[in-house]
Design a protein around this nucleic acid. Structure first.
Length: 882
DNA sequence: CTCTTCACG
DNA sequence: ACGTACGTGAAGAGT
């Protein structure tokens, strides 16, 4: 049988696992107080790789200690690295125990790194005709790839890997695997703390290697190079380059005392492994072990609810768990598959949703004194409402609570979410119902009912610990006073829906179609052939190969034809302007005319969006089916779509109010910057005020529209976590100018500068950032070795408290608004939220009332150190509410 | 099912 | 030297 060898870089993978589950550090502890996140992650990776590779032979290599032949060669090798956390080191011995239970060889060798052991064995395996897979978190090992050895580098978490073959290395890096060490030799390696040739980075190295093949090749030809700074650096740093290459070179002949013959893998010792899992408190792995050993899954007890035993529900007088199964995501239209209700291990299940309408059930559901524990209360409310049932007080919503605890846990599948919280007695819907076209509610009552009963059991089991965590995070008010009432308000808005006039849309659609075919013909003439203008690939071919226009930007897969590129090309050829025009109309037509028409419910001529309350990383809502948060407004052509959005009654109008510069006001508040706060308190035009400050202007008259535009871009940039490059691209200035703008900005607004520095530091220390309402976002990448990932996390750390606090504020305003509309007995209905804007429909005569009421509710939603400003508009359609 | 593009705040 | 603004959803093309 063909030999398949799996080699694992133990330290590197364990380290990846540790950081992948770093924000769960406290959840992963066993009864002895041992942290287990790295062990758990390592196990996940092992299972994953064994399943993928099906190895006949295996070995996990570890580093033997701090000193190696490399540190002897160069004292500072891997110097300057942060100290390994104690929570990590304590887990290493247990990872080796885990491997023993698995029956996997592990090995370390004094003076050598794990890489060298792997390199040596991979070499032997290649010679012996094995197929080898190397697993590591370290990209440098890709130098080991050959036709028979692939290197799998962990990319995200521990179970997702990128597989490097020689072809993939070539494609990705532009060099052969063998040349990686020459590359490292020239550039050095900051994370391992050794330098290469001064001023030579990846780009330059690539050029040199393309021309000369290797470091040796470079130096054979160095004398012949024409005089340049680079040549001087090359000559000066010859020794450094040679040394760096040696440091980067993985040994293929380490004096190891294991051989290929010792690596046979026969599968785990199940008893030993079970014992280990029990000690580590790994419930889910234990369960999988039992499934594999054909031990039957523990059955769950339930009662089938019928019209004959409804009276049994009377036993629930304090709280019930409830779950309504709707097979498709859109709960406005989905069928009903069944439901489950009960408490404390007594579960009642039925497929017959008609039963819900019987008083024995509906009274229970609509009761305000008997509280409900559910998964996704908004979905449940809308579903029940379609059956004519009100959902009364909800105490616990597993979906909402999970999201608040960690915005990354936003799966909409109860089973997966429960698993994330360490609860393993509920398979995912995908497992029970299937996926894709095969997805279906099981015909077998036992299977289906057990699954529903398990869902209730999961909700009940997780409730106490999750609520406790919520309190520990100081998030109970966020949950009780914001997200839960928010869910109710959103359900009401979604059910209300907004009327869309299909006649208006259809008329626009036929106009667009006509114009499209005209422009299409012109484009074909200019191109000299017919092609699909909507295909970036075909369009790229025409523009850059046939017509030879200059290539400004490339994407991963070809030429970029994005707007900013085409705008630069417009003066070159008339076809470009026509393409831009075509694109614009085509987008409006397909997404907003055709798409919106598809979404209109024939029963009421309305669209009923769904707001996703547990999706965004910042606390904002998102809107789907259809998305009503991105209806065109910036360009007149598209803005006309808004004419189709009309009130649902004659004599009514659309009314809208929006926060003016809410994010900058939040910025002024949370940074405490005195200068910025003063501008808002004085009621100044903030962009003009910023312009006067950063450009040092004496009078407001000096603020030209262009200067104001630039200041506005800087203000936005600050909110996004600015970079000089980003700003320069945005307003078309040089990077140097952008940098000087930013410097002036921070000089003029020192509070903002201090805040930005602090928040990044805070994110580093605690691993997350918070909004004014204690909404929390974890930023695991803040510890990343990769400059890119880390920088992204840092910008996110700066932006999230601002964007998220603004989201908190409008949510609070919406809850208060809904209360007031009811209290004042108004017919006005809140219909839409677009991040900083609320849209209503109301009888004409209520408009004057709303003009006072809505802004006053919105601007007093929370008390900040700066005033909030609200502007209102109204008209016969959404278009006219401007 | 991923990529690119483009609509919004 | 590195390679970039923050947060979303939908459509169409092409694998």
């Amino acid at each position: 049988m063909a030999k398949k060898l799996l080699l694992i870089d133990g330290n590197s993978v364990a380290f990846r696992a540790f950081f992948a589950l770093h924000n769960q550090l406290e959840r992963f502890t066993n009864a002895d107080g041992l942290h287990t996140n790295a062990i758990y992650g390592f196990n996940t990776m092992l299972d994953h790789m064994i399943k993928a590779v099906e190895p006949t032979d295996m070995l996990v290599a570890f580093d033997a200690g701090k000193t190696t032949f490399r540190t002897k060669m160069f004292d500072d090798y891997k110097g300057g690295r942060a100290k390994t956390p104690g929570e990590f080191s304590e887990q290493m011995p247990y990872i080796k125990q885990l491997l023993d239970a698995y029956g996997i060889q592990h090995y370390e060798l004094k003076d050598f790194e794990a890489d060298d052991i792997i390199g040596t064995l991979a070499g032997q395996a290649d010679a012996a005709g094995y197929t080898t897979t190397v697993v590591t978190g370290d990209r440098d090992l890709t130098q080991l790839t050959t036709d028979h050895t692939t290197v799998a580098v962990t990319v995200k978490g521990v179970s997702e890997v990128e597989r490097y073959t020689p072809e993939h290395v070539q494609e990705k890096l532009g060099i052969t695997p063998k040349q990686i060490i020459d590359m490292k030799g020239l550039t050095g390696d900051t994370s391992d703390n050794y330098p290469g040739v001064t001023k030579v980075g990846e780009k330059t190295a690539l050029k040199l290697l393309k021309e000369y093949g290797s470091i040796e090749g470079v130096y054979e030809n160095v004398d012949a190079m024409k005089k340049s700074k680079m040549k001087e650096h090359l000559i000066e740093d010859h020794d450094l380059a040679t040394r760096a290459k040696v440091l980067a070179t993985i040994k293929r002949d380490a004096p190891i005392t294991v051989g290929l013959a010792d690596l046979a893998y026969a599968g785990p010792d199940v008893d030993k492994l079970a014992e280990f899992y029990t000690e580590m408190d790994f419930q889910s792995f234990l369960k999988k072990l039992h499934v594999q050993s054909d031990e039957p899954e523990k059955p769950i007890e339930f009662t089938v609810l019928t019209s004959a035993n409804l009276d049994e529900l009377a036993q629930f007088s304090d709280h019930v768990d409830f779950y309504l199964e709707m097979p498709t995501p859109n709960y406005h239209t989905s069928a009903f598959a069944g439901f489950a209700i009960g408490a404390d291990g007594k579960w009642f299940i039925s497929r017959d949703v008609e039963l819900l309408m019987k008083p024995a059930v509906s009274d229970l559901l609509s009761s305000t004194s008997i509280t409900k524990d559910v998964f996704d209360m908004k979905r449940t409310m809308v579903g029940l409402n379609r059956l004519g049932i009100q959902l009364g007080t909800v105490d616990f919503d597993l979906l909402l609570v999970s999201y608040l605890l960690d915005t990354n846990d936003n799966s909409n599948d109860l089973g997966s979410l429960a698993e994330q919280h360490g609860y393993s007695d509920l398979p995912s819907d995908e497992v029970v119902y299937g996926k894709g076209v095969k997805r279906a509610i099981p015909d077998d009552d036992q299977v289906f009912f057990s699954h529903l009963a398990r869902k209730l059991a999961a909700i009940a089991a997780l409730k106490p610990e999750l609520l406790k965590k919520l309190t520990a995070n100081e998030q109970a008010p966020l949950y009780d006073d914001i997200e839960k009432p928010m869910a109710i308000v959103l359900a009401q808005m979604e059910m209300a829906g907004i009327t869309v006039d299909s006649g208006t849309l259809k008329a626009m659609g036929s106009q667009f179609k006509e114009r499209l075919s005209e422009i299409e013909q012109t484009i074909y003439q200019e191109a000299g052939e017919e092609f699909n203008i909507n295909s970036p690939k075909q369009l790229g071919h025409i523009l850059f190969e046939e017509m030879k226009l200059p290539v400004i930007k490339k994407t991963k897969t070809g030429y970029s034809t994005a707007v900013d590129v085409l705008e630069k090309l417009a003066p070159e050829a008339p076809i470009v302007a026509n393409i831009l025009q075509y694109r614009q109309i085509s987008k409006i037509n397909s997404t907003y005319v055709v798409g919106l028409l598809d979404a209109i419910h024939s029963s009421d001529q309305k669209v009923h969006t769904r707001y996703l309350q547990t999706l965004t990383q910042t606390g904002r809502l998102s809107s789907v089916d259809p998305n009503l948060q991105n209806i065109p407004v910036r360009l007149e052509e598209g803005r006309k779509i808004r004419k189709a959005f009309i009130p649902s009654h004659d004599g009514w109008q659309i009314f809208s109010s929006d926060y003016s510069q809410i994010e900058l006001r939040v910025l002024a508040h949370i940074t405490g910057d005195a200068n910025m706060q003063e501008a808002f308190k004085e009621g100044d035009d903030i962009h003009a005020a910023t312009a006067m400050r950063i450009f040092n202007l004496k009078s407001p008259e000096d603020v030209t529209p262009n200067i104001r535009r630039q200041a506005k871009a800087v203000n936005f940039g600050i909110v996004y976590g600015i970079s000089d490059y980003g700003l320069s691209q945005n307003i078309g200035i040089t990077r140097k100018q952008a940098k000087s703008f930013i410097d002036s900005y921070f000089r003029e607004y020192p509070g903002v500068k201090a805040y930005m520095e602090n928040i990044v530091k805070t994110a580093h220390e605690q691993g997350y950032v918070e909004t004014i309402s204690h909404r929390r976002r974890y930023l695991p990448d803040i510890h990343s070795k990769s400059f890119n990932q880390r920088s992204f996390a840092e910008r996110t750390a700066m932006n999230t408290p601002i964007q998220g606090s603004a989201a908190d504020i409008i949510k609070i305003a919406m809850i208060k608004m809904q209360d007031r509309l009811k209290a004042e007995g108004l017919k006005a209905t809140m219909l839409l939220q677009v991040h900083d804007e609320l849209i209503f429909e109301a009888p004409k005569e209520e408009i004057p009332v709303l003009e006072k009421l809505v802004p006053s509710v919105m601007d007093s939603a929370v008390k900040l150190d700066v005033p909030l400003k609200v502007e209102s508009h109204f008209g016969d359609t959404w278009y006219d509410a401007k």
